[in-house]
Write a protein that binds this DNA or RNA. Structure first.
Lengths: 143, 143
DNA sequence: CTGTATCCTTAGGGATACTG
DNA sequence: CAGTATCCCTAAGGATACAG
């Protein structure tokens, strides 16, 4: 089991955010949960960035410790675990969205992405709504 | 001189953004430039997170290589260098702002911050305008 | 399938002395 | 002041084998 240590440098809100998700992997897991509907360990591991399993386990544990995700046994399959965003995790949607828009504006390859850039550009408000709606659906189904 | 290596993992816009500024230090430099009006090496080094000088030099070089900041000799003092945000760097303002708002909402210590949280909460649009105005002012003064 | 554990290499970065 | 250069240690993380 990965030992989790949550550090905090200063009182600054930017610094705080960086302490929680300021690394190259954490937000990719959030992305998979938020925009790609992924919920299981194996699905995260499949993502094209190819996160190592130990790193994935570490980030999932940290995200749970930070209260950004929950981890439950799938009621429909006791061998499966299901990860879901909490309200606190879901509240990162605007941050992710602005990152997407920035990348799309400044990087041609990102701009060409079909997964969420188009929707983000055309209707940011609707995308934000659809994210929280989808999350609510998942929760009520899972409970 | 720090050797700069810019990597890119996938075409994904989130992944791209993380490749550019996904670490614990880069956005602190951007923060200092954007919200605190800092422009010089020594000012960044003074920040309370106490970035090491070699790390600072590395991040400044990377930011310049990515086109987020410029580096010039101060025309008023040839011994001084002045760092400034480019349009591309300035365009990160909404990302930083959403991070501030998220932290303020989910962390009491951040919420208590006086530097930019209050203004961010009360008038996000005005804050964004004031940032780009300040940047324009700096540029015209420096040129 | 969901993780854990281990091995091992590299990158990150703190401390600090030093240079133009 | 604005960096550079070492030294050295720790954390990050890739690869992979293993366990429930």
């Amino acid at each position: 089991m990965a030992k989790i240590k949550l550090t905090r440098r200063t009182h600054c809100p930017i610094s705080y955010a960086l302490d929680v998700f300021g690394d190259k992997w954490t937000l990719l897991v959030i992305r998979d949960l938020m925009f790609k509907g992924k919920r299981r360990y194996g699905e995260f591991a499949e993502s094209e960035e190819k996160i190592a399993t130990n790193v994935l386990a570490d980030r999932l544990a940290k995200l749970e410790a930070e209260g950004l995700i929950t981890r439950h046994v799938d009621p429909e399959n006791a061998r499966q675990r299901v990860y879901e965003l909490t309200e606190r995790g879901l509240a990162l949607a605007p941050v992710l969205l602005e990152m997407i828009l920035w990348s799309a504006k400044h990087d041609p390859e990102s701009a060409a992405d079909k997964t969420f850039v188009r929707e983000a550009q055309h209707n940011r408000a609707r995308l934000l709504r659809s994210i929280s709606t989808a999350a609510r659906g998942r929760r009520s189904k899972g409970a």
